[in-house]
């Protein structure tokens, strides 16, 4: 059965392009090695040409042989490609009354801002999704149009999919990144981590190995943090078809403890691989969170 598709409520987080620029401008991008591929580098493979690619890297032989524009990629020790992987499953479409936008919208804002920061320093940015509808993964690319492509892809996505049911969703999203992300690349995974099956952690955490840096950004709605309901409520999850009746006043503390335990578990596993987990609430200042992510990247890299 096809999972329901949820449109994303962008709310105060739209338009993404402008918001992301604004956030990015407030972030200090620390000095790091050039990510530009240059002379003396090892051949890193070919890929299809996308508009905006440096014409100097077009593989003429491949063009003559296959009549297809291909770009030669080189990998140097200074490769700091930024891979963004955004959870676009159904739960990310959630937005409570107090939140400025859906969790996906906030995650997209952070992702776009990070891509802006990375692209501004010449690092290529790739993009992947877990679940989602209308999403198109992007290989890491740099250039002036890369930001627009990232933003356009993020904006066109709609939330769908149940990671509980589709246990391979995370693996499918992570596998291409794991293949392409070289040593020194940074992988930032945006998700609420709430509905991911336990195997997802096994699929995701290895991204932090092989000289790569894995940053997991847990994006939560303020309602998910506080459980603000009162009295007897019947709670239905967006994934997993879980329905719970509870007197919220009685179970609030227990819920918070379980949520904290979930976060702790992820933090432990991610940090075991040298990565970092950044927790964000959609009401948090996106600039501050982006800066925290950049800082986490620096810390992990150090």
């Amino acid at each position: 059965m096809r999972s329901p598709v949820f449109p994303i409520e962008w709310g105060q987080l739209a338009p993404l392009r402008l918001r992301a620029r604004t956030v990015a401008e407030g972030v200090y991008a620390g000095p790091h090695r050039s990510v530009r591929k240059g002379a003396g580098v090892e051949f890193g493979g070919q890929r299809s040409y996308v508009p905006g690619d440096d014409l100097r890297f077009i593989d003429r032989r491949a063009l003559l042989r296959h009549d297809k524009l291909m770009v030669r990629e080189f990998e140097t020790e200074t490769d700091r490609a930024l891979w963004l992987c955004v959870d676009a499953t159904a739960s990310m479409a959630y937005k409570s009354d107090k939140a400025p936008g859906a969790k996906y919208a906030y995650a997209a804002l952070l992702a776009a801002a990070l891509s802006r920061v990375a692209l501004a320093t010449g690092d290529p940015v790739g993009l992947g999704f877990v679940g989602g509808d209308g999403v198109r993964p992007q290989s890491a690319s740099a250039g002036r149009e890369a930001f627009d492509r990232v933003v356009g892809t993020l904006e066109s996505a709609r939330a769908t999919g149940d990671a509980n049911v589709d246990a391979g969703a995370v693996e499918r999203a992570v596998a291409p990144i794991a293949r392409k992300a070289r040593r020194g690349s940074v992988i930032v995974f945006f998700s609420d981590l709430l509905d991911l099956p336990s195997v997802a952690r096994g699929d995701l955490v290895p991204l932090g190995t092989g000289g790569r840096t894995l940053i997991v950004v847990q994006v939560l709605d303020p309602a998910e943090v506080d459980l603000p309901f009162e009295g007897s409520v019947r709670l239905r999850s967006l994934e997993g078809d879980v329905v719970v009746e509870a007197d919220v006043d009685e179970v609030r503390e227990a819920y918070k403890e379980r949520l904290a335990e979930l976060t702790r578990r992820w933090t432990r596993d991610v940090e075991a691989q040298g990565g970092r987990l950044v927790r964000a609430v959609t009401t948090d200042d996106a600039t501050h969170i982006t800066r925290s992510i950049v800082r986490a990247i620096a810390e992990a890299h150090a």
């Binding site: 739960s91 959630y94 709430l194 239905r236 009746e245 509870a246 227990a254 819920y255």
Partner: peptide
């Protein structure tokens, strides 16, 4: 009881509410 969408519903312990 009022039904609400809540992604982390699985983390909420189910209780027979007093009022109910």
């Amino acid at each position: 009881a009022d039904e609400k969408l809540f992604p982390p519903a699985a983390l909420v312990p189910a209780t027979p509410p007093t009022a109910r």
